[in-house]
Computed example of a mutant assay.
Amino acid sequence: MFVYRGAGCTGKGRMAAFEKMLGRPADGVVEFSERSDWSHMLSSINWALGCWDGTSYRLAQSVPMLMDKGTSLAAGADGAYDRHFRALGELLVRKGHADAYLRIGWEFNGGWYPWAAKRDPAAFVRLFRRIVTVMRAVPGQRFVIVWNPAQGEQQIAPDRVWPGAAYVDVVALDLYNQSWNPLDRLSPQRRWTTLVEQPYGLSWAARFARAQGKPLALPEWGTGTRPDGHGFGDDPVFIAGVADFVRRHRVAFTGYWDYNAGDYNAELSNGRQPRAAAAFRTHFGR
């Protein structure tokens, strides 16, 4: 079980509460970076990796394909940012994370990140392949490349921008217990069925991964609340559903979102969702 508890030293200081709830040590941590410019991306990752020095957690590093301003998919696809990805790969190897999972351009089918694939699907695919090629050329690396859409079709069908099996090691899906369909409020079982059967939901991810000969991952998943009321909170049915899915499929890793991000609060380890926390420990603990 991987987990996100906050960036770097913030997350490290919160691991004890999560592991107490889980009943065993976590297997790894999910990390992110700044996106103001390439220099801050590298320095923020360097800082975070320093915080995890001396621990045995495996790393799932979220790799931004672009910065928030002044970059483009087309320029990246033509090689404008190669040196930054090479530097990132070298940093990860140097810091002892040569086996990191790399979530390159995660949630690319949505519109909330600058690398949104809908803006230029062909350039997105070329840039994804280019980043993989650059990082795989770093001496000493054993990186595991993760292709990671968000749940649902969002703004573009994920399989429209599949970079090819040669460039991907793990097919992933981020999954949150949320819905805008009024019928999903009827019962947690109905919500879970929607998450499984919706277009580009869990069933699609399992079929697609199997067709490509790749394992699955759920790098971000959680149940919690949203300020707009579309999150379903303390829901042990969701936890049990994820556990059953993991048991029935070839899943490389899962990363629980034990964090209050403002727009989604899926924390379990602080006691605010006792039924979901109990189910989590039952299904994923010792």
Results as ranks from 00 to 15, higher is better:
residue 154 Q to E: 15
residue 168 V to F: 07
residue 164 G to L: 04
residue 271 G to R: 13
residue 275 R to D: 13
residue 158 P to F: 11
residue 94 R to A: 15
residue 191 R to W: 00
residue 151 Q to D: 08
residue 184 D to Y: 00
residue 118 K to R: 13
residue 20 K to G: 10
residue 274 P to Q: 07
residue 262 G to K: 08
residue 130 R to Y: 02
residue 176 Y to Q: 11
residue 18 F to R: 11
residue 103 R to T: 05
residue 7 A to R: 08
residue 194 T to S: 15
residue 55 T to A: 13
residue 46 N to R: 15
residue 107 E to Y: 04
residue 142 R to C: 12
residue 122 A to H: 04
residue 189 Q to C: 09
residue 27 D to G: 05
residue 51 C to W: 01
residue 264 Y to K: 08
residue 153 E to F: 04
residue 110 G to C: 08
residue 134 V to K: 04
residue 94 R to K: 12
residue 160 R to N: 09
residue 172 A to T: 10
residue 202 L to A: 06
residue 188 P to Q: 08
residue 168 V to H: 12
residue 240 A to R: 14
residue 41 M to Y: 12
residue 143 F to Y: 13
residue 49 L to K: 06
residue 270 N to M: 05
residue 129 R to E: 11
residue 60 A to D: 06
residue 204 W to F: 01
residue 211 A to W: 11
residue 78 D to C: 05
residue 158 P to I: 11
residue 160 R to F: 10
residue 42 L to F: 08
residue 182 P to V: 03
residue 229 G to H: 02
residue 193 T to P: 02
residue 163 P to H: 07
residue 87 A to Y: 01
residue 14 R to N: 12
residue 259 Y to S: 11
residue 191 R to V: 03
residue 193 T to W: 13
residue 257 W to N: 11
residue 71 T to L: 01
residue 175 L to Y: 02
residue 233 G to N: 01
residue 201 G to H: 01
residue 182 P to E: 09
residue 179 S to H: 02
residue 66 L to I: 03
residue 51 C to H: 06
residue 31 E to N: 05
residue 64 P to G: 06
residue 230 H to Y: 00
residue 232 F to N: 07
residue 96 G to V: 03
residue 132 V to A: 06
residue 269 S to Q: 05
residue 116 A to V: 03
residue 40 H to P: 00
residue 4 Y to E: 07
residue 145 I to N: 03
residue 103 R to K: 07
residue 264 Y to H: 15
residue 63 V to L: 10
residue 245 F to D: 01
residue 163 P to D: 08
residue 201 G to D: 08
residue 249 H to E: 06
residue 107 E to L: 06
residue 267 E to N: 09
residue 149 P to D: 09
residue 82 D to H: 08
residue 67 M to K: 09
residue 90 E to L: 07
residue 268 L to R: 02
residue 285 G to H: 07
residue 77 A to N: 10
residue 56 S to L: 10
residue 109 N to I: 04
residue 148 N to K: 06
residue 112 W to D: 11
residue 139 P to L: 09
residue 197 E to T: 15
residue 223 T to D: 03
residue 10 T to N: 13
residue 111 G to L: 03
residue 269 S to Y: 03
residue 64 P to Q: 02
residue 185 R to W: 03
residue 212 Q to T: 03
residue 139 P to F: 01
residue 9 C to Q: 11
residue 36 S to P: 05
residue 47 W to S: 14
residue 48 A to E: 14
residue 83 R to D: 15
residue 215 P to W: 01
residue 161 V to S: 07
residue 125 V to Q: 06
residue 238 F to G: 00
residue 276 A to P: 13
residue 277 A to P: 14
residue 140 G to F: 05
residue 101 Y to N: 10
residue 225 T to P: 06
residue 148 N to W: 05
residue 90 E to V: 12
residue 47 W to P: 03
residue 62 S to T: 12
residue 60 A to K: 04
residue 90 E to A: 14
residue 22 L to H: 00
residue 52 W to Q: 04
residue 279 A to G: 02
residue 185 R to D: 04
residue 11 G to R: 04
residue 144 V to I: 12
residue 50 G to T: 07
residue 73 L to V: 11
residue 61 Q to N: 08
residue 7 A to P: 12
residue 59 L to D: 00
residue 242 V to I: 15
residue 24 R to Q: 14
residue 259 Y to C: 07
residue 253 F to R: 06
